[in-house]
């Protein structure tokens, strides 16, 4: 680990103040399961870490009317087993698929939602990146995965983000200057280097999900092994069905771009229909058109692209099966 200064925040306000003081040299330390390896590899240059682990508020769950408010400090292992989340099947599923049990015991909800994008050319030691000649994202001029690109295309690597976007989650951002709510769907942008729509001084404090909106949800993750893996592709589906007819559909693709891609065309195909083989095939067919992965992750871009439709089809079949 590089040398750094450590700060322990006793409250959200204090954390926000420390973050504002530290500027771009400071980062929030949640579980640290992704931040620590990145710092060891010298991918980050933070001189100050602000530990929010002691802030009780961040580990609370609160219910108000139809909404469930989840503190960003909640551990993934807790979420994967929490009965509070039973109605958000895909959310529990996704939380249980992240990495390994040990990582899930330390990793947090907020940490996973804000996890930096990943790229096979960037998540490497500094000596390796020096041999490469660096890249567009850091110290270099060209994107190694997509040579002509003017912007970094590293895909987001969160399992939870596509699911929570599909479930219509909102986030609460706290800074020294105040608070604001945002739709999680609008929390990301198409820039692998800086993919979060928040200022450096904002802390993701809460996630709110509304119950009763969707009747079915599922998350499928593409990876080579059964554990230890980041997603090469994530497909999150949330449907609202009344007597088999779909009146609301949310299909979100993860790990295919710096932001979670909403497969609007596929959603539109499903709305008003029932989950027949034909409708499923049509929605699946449209999904692949909505993303263009590049060679910056495990498994080739053409394969990942092909799997969008395949996984979406499987997800919809799984929902149909569960409902019957």
């Amino acid at each position: 680990m590089p040398r750094l200064q450590y700060y322990r925040a006793k409250s959200l306000q204090e954390a926000a103040r420390m973050l504002a003081d530290g500027g771009c040299q400071a980062a929030i330390l949640g579980g640290g399961t992704d931040l620590v390896p990145r710092m060891k590899r010298r991918q980050e240059n933070f001189k100050a870490l602000i530990d929010v682990g002691a802030i009780r508020q961040l580990s609370q769950i609160r219910r108000a009317k139809n909404k469930l408010y989840l503190g960003a400090g909640l551990k993934l292992s807790f979420l994967a087993q929490s009965s509070e989340l039973s109605q958000f099947a895909a959310f529990k599923q996704a939380a249980g698929l992240v990495a390994t049990p040990a990582i899930r015991n330390q990793a947090t909800l907020g940490g996973n939602l804000c996890i930096p994008t990943r790229c096979v050319y960037f998540d490497r030691s500094d000596q390796w990146r020096e041999s490469l000649g660096f890249c567009l994202r850091h110290k270099g001029l060209a994107c190694r995965a997509a040579p002509g690109s003017a912007v970094c295309l590293a895909p987001m690597s969160s399992d939870l983000a596509p699911v929570l976007v599909a479930l219509g989650a909102q986030v609460q951002l706290v800074s020294r200057d105040g608070e604001r709510a945002a739709r999680l769907e609008e929390f990301y942008k198409n820039d692998g280097k800086d993919h979060l729509q928040k200022s450096a001084g904002e802390i993701l404090a809460w996630v709110a999900v509304e119950s009763g909106v969707f009747t079915d949800s599922v998350y499928l993750k593409l990876s080579r092994r059964h554990s230890f893996e980041f997603p090469s592709l994530g497909v999150a589906v949330a449907l609202s069905r009344r007597k088999g007819t779909i009146d609301a559909a949310k299909i979100v693709l993860g790990s295919i771009a710096p932001y979670p891609v909403v497969a609007r065309e596929s959603q539109d195909i499903l709305i008003g229909g029932k989950l027949s083989d034909e409708l499923i095939a049509k929605a699946a067919g449209a999904a692949a058109r909505q993303a263009t992965p590049v060679a910056n992750a495990d498994l080739s871009p053409s394969y990942r692209r092909k799997m969008i439709g395949v996984l979406l089809k499987k997800a919809l079949h799984e929902i149909r099966q569960a409902g019957s």
């Binding site: 680990m1 450590y6 322990r8 330390l29 579980g31 640290g32 399961t33 620590v36 390896p37 870490l49 530990d51 682990g53 292992s77 049990p101 040990a102 990582i103 015991n105 330390q106």
Partner: peptide, 16 residues
Amino acid sequence: ILNGKNVYSCLVLAPQ
């Protein structure tokens, strides 16, 4: 094992 939960000790920082 840290407070009853298994963790990777290479990822836990001293102040934690």
